[in-house]
Amino acid sequence: MTPDLLELAVVIPTFNERGNVATLVARLDAALAGRNWEAIFVDDDSPDGTAQAVRELARLDKRVRVIQRIGRRGLSTACIEGMCATAAPFVAVIDGDMQHDETKLAEMLDALEADDTLEVVIGSRFCEGGCTGEWDSDRVAKSAFATRLSRRVLKADLTDPMSGFFMIRTGIVRQMVPTLSGIGFKILLDIMTASPQPLKFAEVPYVFRTRTEGESKLDHVVAMEYLIALYDRMFGKVVPVRFAMFSGIGALGAGIHFLILGVLFRMMALPFVAATIVATVVAMTFNFFLNNALTYRGQRLKGAKALWAGWVSFCIVCSVGAAANVGVAAFLHNVQHGDWRLSALAGIMVAAVWNFALSSRFTWGRY
Score class of each variant (00 low, 15 high):
94 I>E: 10
330 A>T: 07
261 L>T: 04
170 T>M: 08
61 D>R: 11
81 E>W: 13
252 L>T: 11
14 T>L: 08
224 M>P: 05
165 F>Y: 06
14 T>A: 01
1 M>E: 10
209 R>T: 13
229 A>D: 10
167 M>I: 07
115 D>R: 05
141 A>C: 03
155 K>D: 11
30 A>P: 03
240 P>I: 01
251 A>D: 13
338 G>C: 15
196 P>W: 09
172 I>Y: 04
58 A>P: 11
182 G>E: 07
249 I>N: 15
213 E>F: 15
178 P>L: 04
3 P>I: 12
72 R>H: 08
307 L>E: 02
3 P>V: 07
66 V>G: 00
9 A>I: 06
216 S>N: 00
300 R>Y: 08
319 S>R: 13
245 M>V: 02
200 K>W: 12
15 F>Y: 11
134 E>Y: 04
184 G>C: 09
289 F>P: 04
351 A>T: 07
49 G>T: 09
46 S>Y: 01
134 E>P: 14
312 V>F: 15
153 V>H: 10
156 A>M: 06
249 I>W: 05
103 T>F: 13
288 F>L: 00
92 A>S: 06
144 A>G: 09
194 A>H: 03
65 R>V: 05
140 V>E: 14
249 I>V: 05
302 K>W: 14
64 V>M: 02
74 G>A: 03
358 L>R: 15
127 C>S: 05
58 A>M: 08
353 V>P: 07
360 S>K: 10
80 I>D: 10
140 V>D: 11
194 A>F: 06
118 L>T: 02
109 L>N: 01
227 L>V: 02
106 A>W: 14
112 L>Y: 07
205 P>C: 04
322 A>Q: 05
10 V>S: 00
148 R>Y: 11
119 E>A: 06
345 L>I: 13
313 S>H: 01
71 G>P: 06
288 F>T: 04
342 L>Y: 11
134 E>R: 14
286 F>A: 11
89 P>T: 06
308 W>S: 07
236 G>T: 06
244 A>D: 06
345 L>Q: 06
242 R>F: 10
26 A>Y: 07
221 V>H: 15
254 A>I: 12
89 P>L: 03
49 G>V: 12
227 L>I: 01
43 D>K: 00
92 A>G: 13
99 Q>H: 12
82 G>N: 04
61 D>W: 03
28 L>Q: 02
279 A>E: 00
265 F>C: 02
296 Y>I: 07
118 L>F: 08
304 A>D: 15
288 F>Y: 01
32 L>F: 00
190 D>A: 05
285 T>W: 03
303 G>I: 01
36 N>V: 01
359 S>V: 03
191 I>H: 13
88 A>G: 02
263 V>L: 12
307 L>G: 07
274 A>Q: 12
68 Q>L: 14
179 T>S: 13
35 R>K: 10
139 R>I: 12
29 D>K: 15
52 Q>L: 04
295 T>K: 01
101 D>F: 00
307 L>T: 03
211 R>A: 12
364 W>P: 09
50 T>F: 09
231 Y>L: 02
343 S>D: 08
305 K>L: 11
260 I>D: 00
330 A>E: 00
166 F>Y: 06
109 L>C: 04
107 E>R: 14
194 A>P: 12
114 A>L: 12
360 S>D: 11
267 M>Y: 14
286 F>H: 13
325 N>G: 05
263 V>A: 10
46 S>F: 10
112 L>V: 11
223 A>F: 07
215 E>D: 14
289 F>Y: 10
157 D>K: 03
344 A>N: 14
